[in-house]
Computed example of a mutant assay.
Amino acid sequence: MTRWGKFAAIVFMATLAAVAGAVVFAYSLEGKSTHRFAPKTRSSLAGHWESNLGGSLQFKENGEFSATNINLEPTCSTTTKDQQPNPRMSGSGEWNFGSPSDDDGPAVVITFKPDGLGVADCTVWGRLGGDDANPEIYLRQDDRTREYYQRPVSK
C-alpha cells in the first residue's frame, strides 16, 4: 500500500469512528433533553407534584408550600396513636430557591411544619433534577433516601 493509501485508510477509519460515536450518543439520549431542570422563577416551579409512593407536593408562586403523605424521616417525625414513628406525614410551610451547598445544583429550601408535630418547623431540601421536559424533585433527608416527585401527566 502506498503512503497516500495508508493515509486515506487512516482518515476513513477515523471518520467512520467519529460517525459511529455520534450515532451511539444520539441513540443514548433517547429523545431526552440534555438541559437539566433549573427553574429561575417561582412560576416555573409552582404547581402540583406527585410521587410514585403516593406523596403530593404543592408549590405556590407566593412562596406557600403544602404536602400530603410525604416521607421526611428522620429529619421530621410524628408518631402514630400507639407512639410508633410515622415517617409519612402532611403539613404546610414556605419555600424558596436555595441549595445546601454549591455542589448540589439547583434546589429549593422548604420550611415545613408537619401536622401534629408540636415543635419547631423542619428545614427540608428539595433537589431539582430531570430535564425541562421531565422535571423531578426529590426531598433530601439526612439518611439520603430519595422519593422522586414529578408533575402529573394529563389524562
Score class of each variant (00 low, 15 high):
T2I: 07
R3S: 11
R3L: 12
W4C: 05
W4P: 02
F7Q: 08
A8W: 05
V11H: 04
V11G: 07
F12E: 07
F12Q: 09
M13H: 06
L16F: 10
L16S: 13
A17G: 11
A17Y: 05
G21E: 07
A22W: 14
Y27I: 12
Y27C: 09
S28Y: 06
S28W: 08
L29R: 10
L29H: 10
L29W: 14
E30H: 08
G31F: 04
K32E: 15
S33A: 11
S33I: 08
T34R: 08
T34E: 11
T34D: 12
H35Q: 11
F37Q: 09
A38S: 15
A38R: 09
P39R: 00
K40C: 07
S43D: 14
E50W: 01
E50G: 03
S51D: 09
L53E: 13
L53P: 00
L53G: 10
G54S: 04
S56Y: 03
F59R: 01
K60F: 13
E61S: 15
G63D: 09
S66C: 02
S66I: 02
T68N: 09
N69R: 08
N69W: 05
N71I: 03
E73P: 00
C76F: 07
T78N: 07
T78D: 05
T80E: 09
D82R: 10
Q83N: 13
P85I: 15
N86S: 15
N86E: 08
N86H: 12
P87S: 14
P87C: 05
M89R: 00
M89Y: 01
G91T: 08
G91R: 01
G93T: 05
G93C: 05
E94G: 12
E94K: 14
E94C: 04
N96R: 14
F97K: 03
P100C: 06
P100L: 05
S101F: 01
D102T: 12
D103L: 08
D103M: 06
D104V: 15
D104K: 13
G105I: 04
V108Y: 03
V108P: 01
T111S: 12
P114K: 04
P114Q: 09
L117I: 02
G118K: 10
G118E: 15
V119I: 12
A120F: 08
G129N: 07
G129R: 01
G130E: 07
D132C: 01
D132F: 01
E136Q: 12
L139Q: 00
R140Y: 09
D143T: 09
R146A: 13
R146F: 07
E147S: 08
E147D: 10
Y148P: 00
Y148H: 09
Y148C: 03
